[in-house]
Write a protein that binds this DNA or RNA. Sequence first.
DNA 1: ATTTCGTGTGGGAACGATGTCACATTCCTT
DNA 2: AAGGAATGTGACATCGTTCCCACACGAAAT
Lengths: 346, 346
Amino acid sequence: MTIERRGPLSRSRRPTIKDVAEAAGVSRSTVSRALTGRGYAAPDVRERVLRAAAELGYVPDVMARTLKQQVSRSVGVLVSDLRNPFYAELAAGASREARERGYTMVLADTSLSAEAESEAAEALVALRVAGVVVTPNSSAVSTYLGSHGIPVVEVDRQFAAGSTDGVVVGNRVGARTATAHLVELGHRRIALFIDETDWTTGYERYQGYLEALSAADIKVDPDLVVSSGWDVADSRRRALDMLAGPDRPTAVFAANNVLAEGVWRAIGELGLRAPGEVSLVAFDDAPWMSMVSPQVSAVSQDTFNLGATAVRRLDERIEMPDADSVTTVLGVRLVARESTAPPPVL
Amino acid sequence: MTIERRGPLSRSRRPTIKDVAEAAGVSRSTVSRALTGRGYAAPDVRERVLRAAAELGYVPDVMARTLKQQVSRSVGVLVSDLRNPFYAELAAGASREARERGYTMVLADTSLSAEAESEAAEALVALRVAGVVVTPNSSAVSTYLGSHGIPVVEVDRQFAAGSTDGVVVGNRVGARTATAHLVELGHRRIALFIDETDWTTGYERYQGYLEALSAADIKVDPDLVVSSGWDVADSRRRALDMLAGPDRPTAVFAANNVLAEGVWRAIGELGLRAPGEVSLVAFDDAPWMSMVSPQVSAVSQDTFNLGATAVRRLDERIEMPDADSVTTVLGVRLVARESTAPPPVL
DNA sequence: ATTTCGTGTGGGAACGATGTCACATTCCTT
DNA sequence: AAGGAATGTGACATCGTTCCCACACGAAAT
C-alpha cells in the first residue's frame, strides 16, 4: 500500500484551477466561467476547459469557494440519538433530500446531551453551513444559530415556534386519537407513559391524552401519568411497578417508541396477557411493533418524510431568508393492531 | 421572526479575527497565537484576547483555516442505508468517536447505489476531508479517494484489503459457529440465505457455512443456498418458496438482519412452528430479534464499536500516513436464544 | 472613417486565517 | 553600562476560488 501513497498522483499536489487554465490555454477566470456556467464562455473554449479538467481529475475546492462566497452548500443535521430508529430514519430522509438538492450533510449525534448539542452547533457555525436542521433539546441551539444568522428548522420538537421554521407531526391529534381508541374499546383507567409534559412534543401529546379523557368524562388519575426518563430500562421499571400493583390500569398509552418498549417488556415479564389483561398503544411506530406478538397498535408517523420535509423547508428558507416563518404539521394515522382490545370484564 | 433576522447581530457581518484584534488592542497574529496556543503569548495578553473573542462571539472560520492549512478536521462517513439499524448504529459509533477526537462528521447515505456512492465521494474530495470511513459497495470508492491522497478505512466490508485499512468482524468464524450450532443440534438440511457469495463479507460468511458443513461431513445442497436481494420483500418471497416446498430444510442460517427478517416473516406466514419445525439463526443481532417470540438466535457483532473503531483507525492513519495498512478484526459471539432447537423427528 | 455596441476574455482584488520573517522591546548577565 | 538572549509584535504572502472591471475585437450604425 505504501507504493500507492508514494505514487505520482498522490504525492503531487491536487490540481488547481490554475493548472486547468494552463492546460486549456486560457485564464483562470475563463475556467471558472466555463465550469460554473455563470458568465460568457465560447463553446469551443468551454469544451477545451471541460476536457482539461476531466483529464487532470480537477475537483473544485469547496473551502476556497465557500471562503469567497461566504456561504457553503452544506447543511447541518443535529439529531438526538442515531440508535433510536426514529432518529435514524429521520436522518435518512434528511440525507436523501439534502443530496437531491445538492447539499452535503454534516451530521452530529447529540446523544441527548445539551453540551454536545452546543458543541456541535459551534462546529456548524465554524463550518459556515447554509442552514441547520435540529431535533432540539432546548431552545438554546436555535437561539445561538439564529444569532449567527444561520437559518434553522426545528423538527419533531419545536422550542422556538414563531421565530424559526418547524416541521412536526400532529402530536395532539395523534395522542387524542390513540387515547380515544382505548376509550372506545371501553377502557376507563388508561395510563400515560411520557418523557415530559411541559414542552412541545411532550406537552402536545399530554394535551391530546387529556382531551380524549375529558371528552369521555373520565377524570384524570395523576397516578396513571408517568413521566419516565428517556430510556427503556427506566420505563420498564416504572411499568413493572405500576402493572404489578393492585389496581393497575387496563390500558397504557406510551408516548414514544422507547417508552413503549419498556412497557412492552414489563408486560411480558409480568406474564400479563395482552390485550386480554392490558392493552397497549404507542406513539411512533417502530419496526419491532409489527413483528412482536401481539403486534402493537401505534400512531404511525412518516419519519423519513419528516426529515426530508425539514430539509426542503430549510432550503426554501435559505432561498428566501426574509419570508415569515412556517410550521409544517404532518399527518399521523393510528394503526390498530393486536395489542388493543376491550378491557377485561371484572 | 423578521425582527430578529434584521437585528444588529445578524445583519452585521460575522466577527473576524481582525475585529477581535482591534477589540483586544493587539495584532491579528497575536490573536491567532493566543487562541490556537501555538507560539508566544503573554498571559495577560492571552486573557484579554480570549475575553474579546468571547464578547464578540467570535468563531474561527474553518473554511479559511482549512484553505490555509490544506487539510480539514472533518471526516467523511459513507454508509449504505441508515434505515437499517446496523448502519445506524455504526454511524452512531463513528459519530461519537469523531466528536471525541475533534472531528466533524460529514455523513452520506449511499442508498446502496454505486452512483450515489461516487457522487458522495467526489463531494468529500471537494470538502478536503481528512479521511473517509466507508462501508463500500465496490472497490471504486477506495481507489478514487486513494488516488486523491485521502486516507480511507473500509468498515464491515473490505474490497481493497492490503491497500487500505479495514475494520471487519470475524465473519467466517461467526458463520461457522452459527452453522455448527445448528449441526450440533442435529440439523443436516441447513439453508443459507445470503446477499452474495463472491466478495468480502458475503464470501467469508459463505465459507464459514461451508466449513461447518464440511467438518460435519454434510454435502452442500446448492438448492439450499439462496442468494437474495438486499431487501426484506425479496428474502421473504424466496423463503416462502423454499419453506413451503416438500423437502424443506430443518434450519435456516440468514446471513444478515434484513434477510433474517424476511425468513422470519415467511415462517410466521406459513404457520410453521419455530423452532419445532424450523430453526433460525441470524448473522447480526438486530433489536427485534430479542423481542419477538421465539427470540431469534443470532451472531452478535458490536456494531457501535465497529464504527468507533473505524474512526479511531482513520485518525491513526491520518497521523501516520505512511505506516503499513492494517485490518482490524473484531470478535463476534453467538447468542443462542429460542429459535434454534433440534430438528423434528421424522 | 469614426463611433457604438455586444461578446468574450484576462487581470487583479477580495475572502479569512495562518505562519514566516524581520524587527522591537524587555530582561538578564557580565 | 553594554552586550546578548529571550520574548513579543506587525507587515506580508499564501491558499483556490469568484467577482468586478477593463479591455480587445469585430460588426454594425452613423
